[in-house]
Amino acid sequence: MQFEAESNGIKYEVSVLEGRKAWRVSLKPEGEDWRHYEIPKTDYQFVDQTISFIFKDTSYLVDAIGEGTNYDIYTRGTHRTVEIYNEENLLHESLKGKAGFGGGLNLNSGMPGKIVKVMVEPGQAVAADEPLLIMEAMKMENEMRASAEAIVETVHVQAGDNVEAGATLISFKKAESKK
């Protein structure tokens, strides 16, 4: 089965084959060569509702939770969200006319909270790390900053609004490349 994936800002092509005794997983990070792994099923198995994964002689306890195209992977006190798209997801994304795979030109709320202040307006160009808005959640005021250079397209919220987790707060357009 073929997938496309994105983790920690890097895109991958992924292939998974299930054998009787082993998994064959191949990863190709963008611009690099394929990495092939043959993982005996005894090295990747469920123990006490968690995955015990022995990888390169290192023992990991892994919890993997898939929701839609997001796979939350927890191990050794760390967490990573890996986006996984199969062919159907990719088609779906492109038809929705969204930025789709690798886009993500939206500022979404990672948690439910209340908007305290909005510092930008539609049409405004913002630089990376520029403050966009202040949101209050779990008793703290959190300043949300731009992750990259962009142009504000729509501001979906205003000060005083209560927002749910995952709500889109601000949509962006790609900044025009400097000539």
Partner: peptide
């Protein structure tokens, strides 16, 4: 954590 541990786990789960 080896970065590929995340990817392999996610891929097999998917």
């Amino acid at each position: 954590v080896d970065e590929d541990v995340f990817l392999i786990s996610a891929a097999i789960t998917a």
